[in-house]
């Protein structure tokens, strides 16, 4: 693992280097999913593709939203909108740890100078009915990634097992670029004709969303959205597999899953508005999980999910 790499100079350079690295390792370079999600795992390229028997590999940046983390753009390390970099390979290759360490070198972390540790951390997503075993990866005492071998998704045992890597890009970039305040780190090259910091790009929007998330979002509308998404998800999944128009077998797992994603995000917004009590919280999580499970059940009935007629 000789490292000859230079230190990146900007947030985007870290993303570009990760893209180049994982493309070179053979991952399909996907784009972010076009919906509001809480984490990169929600992308159907991870959640759904981790199911079933077919091999799969993908890497992508996923803009993610956690309304309760909003700090009006004032916090040095918390934003309600942030980026995750996500890699999924199924079946998990035997050298996944080495591949991962290679990606750290690619973004300028020299293994000879730093202390990299794999510290036990079992991952669980109650809303997705998913869990796995793995580690949080520490670089000099700081968590820079989550490394998970998926065991179950949507209540289904994973066979084969997917290896999932999630990089919290802001935190990783702050460390690599040497900034204590994430808003100050360069988004593009510092010597670009128009240099921009992370704060230049996001601070204004952070304040706007924080205000909307916490105080303005109309809870009745959101509650209706939740109910609608739940109902539509169920309605989609109730349809017979055989499409009367084309005469083909079309199980609509992904459109149904879109509704599950929607319900999950609406729930997060309601949570930020503070209208969900502790006991209700569990009930809502259970409802989203029920949707995720139903979608997982449907996905394994599709070709992509390994269904063979």
């Amino acid at each position: 693992m000789a490292s000859q790499t230079t230190t990146p100079r900007s947030f985007q350079e870290i993303i570009l280097r990760l893209q180049a690295y994982w493309a070179e390792k053979g991952c399909a370079m996907l784009q972010p999913y076009d919906m509001e999600v809480g984490a990169g795992t929600f992308h159907p390229a991870t959640t759904l593709r981790a199911l079933g028997s077919k091999d799969w590999t993908a890497a992508y940046v996923q803009p993610s939203r956690r309304p309760t983390d909003g700090r009006y753009g004032d916090s040095p390390n918390r934003w309600q909108h942030y980026y995750q970099y996500q890699v999924i390979i199924k079946p998990s290759p035997p050298d996944l740890q080495d591949l991962y360490l290679g990606s750290l070198e690619a973004i300028g972390i020299d293994m000879k100078m730093h202390d990299i540790r794999f510290v036990e951390d079992d991952w669980e997503s109650p809303t997705l009915g998913a869990w796995g075993l793995g580690w949080e990866v520490w670089c000099d005492g700081m968590e820079v990634s989550q490394f998970t071998y998926f065991q179950q998704v949507g209540g289904h045992d994973c066979h084969p097992v997917s290896g999932e890597l999630t990089y919290g890009l802001e935190r990783l970039a702050m460390y690599v670029l040497g900034f204590d305040d994430g808003n100050e780190m360069p988004f593009n090259a510092p010597d670009a004709p128009i240099p921009l910091t992370y704060g230049d790009v996001f601070r204004e929007a952070e304040a706007q969303y924080a205000r909307w998330n916490f105080d303005v979002a109309d809870t009745d509308t959101l509650l209706q959205h939740f109910k609608d998404a739940e109902a539509e998800c169920a309605r989609i999944l109730e349809q017979p597999a055989d499409d009367p128009k084309t005469g083909r077998r079309i199980v609509m797992a992904q459109p149904a899953y879109d509704q599950c994603i929607k319900a999950s995000h609406v729930f997060n917004l309601l949570d930020a508005r503070g209208v969900i009590s502790v006991t209700e919280r569990q009930a809502y999580i259970g409802r989203v999980r029920a949707l995720a499970k139903a979608c997982a059940d449907a996905f394994v009935q599709t070709d992509a999910g390994g269904y063979a007629a």
Binding site: P91, S92, P93, P94, G132, L133, Q151, V161, G163
Partner: peptide
């Protein structure tokens, strides 16, 4: 106390056995 599978195999260990 908790074990897992990995790759395409069915063997269980605490983390992948090499």
């Amino acid at each position: 106390p908790k074990s897992m599978r990995w790759g395409a195999g069915s063997l269980r260990w605490v983390r992948p056995l090499h």
